[in-house]
Simulated scan of single mutants.
Amino acid sequence: MNKATKNNFKSKLLTIFSLLFVLLLSSCEEVVNLDLETGEAKIVIDAEILWNKDTDGKTQTIKISKMAPYYNTSTPKVSGAQVRVVNNEGTTFTFAETDPGSYVCTDFVPVLNMEYTLFIEAEGKSFTAVEKLISVTPINKIEQRYMPDVDGDDLLVLSVFYNDPADQENFYLTYFTTDFLKIPYYLISNDKFSNGNEIKDEFSDTDLKPGKTVKIVHRGISKNFFNYMNLILEASSANPFGGSPANIRGNIVNTNNSNDFALGYFRLCEANTVSYTMQ
Rank of each mutant, 00 (worst) to 15 (best):
V78D: 06
S79Y: 00
G80W: 01
Q82F: 11
V83G: 01
R84E: 12
V85D: 03
N88H: 03
N88P: 01
E89K: 15
T92P: 03
T92G: 06
T92L: 06
F93T: 00
F93E: 00
T94E: 08
A96S: 04
E97M: 04
E97L: 06
T98S: 12
D99V: 05
D99L: 10
P100R: 07
S102V: 15
Y103V: 00
Y103L: 01
T106P: 01
T106E: 04
D107L: 02
F108Y: 00
V109C: 04
P110F: 00
P110H: 01
L112H: 11
L112G: 15
E115F: 03
Y116A: 03
Y116D: 02
Y116C: 00
T117R: 00
T117M: 03
T117A: 00
T117K: 02
L118I: 06
L118P: 01
F119H: 07
A122M: 08
A122C: 07
E123N: 00
G124A: 11
G124I: 10
K125Q: 14
S126Y: 14
F127T: 07
F127Q: 08
T128A: 15
T128L: 13
T128I: 11
V130W: 02
L133G: 02
I134Y: 04
I134P: 01
S135F: 13
S135P: 11
S135Q: 13
T137Y: 12
T137V: 09
I139G: 03
N140I: 13
N140L: 11
N140G: 15
K141V: 09
I142N: 04
I142S: 03
R145E: 12
P148R: 01
D149R: 09
D149G: 08
V150P: 05
D151T: 14
D153C: 09
D154I: 06
L156A: 05
V157M: 09
L158E: 04
L158V: 07
S159F: 03
F161R: 02
Y162A: 14
D164Q: 08
A166Q: 06
D167G: 05
Q168D: 15
E169I: 11
N170I: 05
F171W: 15
L173K: 10
Y175W: 14
T177N: 08
T177A: 09
D179Q: 13
I183R: 12
P184R: 01
P184N: 04
Y185Q: 11
Y186I: 12
L187Y: 13
I188S: 05
I188P: 03
S189K: 13
N190T: 05
D191V: 08
K192F: 14
F193G: 08
F193Q: 10
F193L: 11
S194C: 07
N195H: 13
G196V: 07
G196N: 07
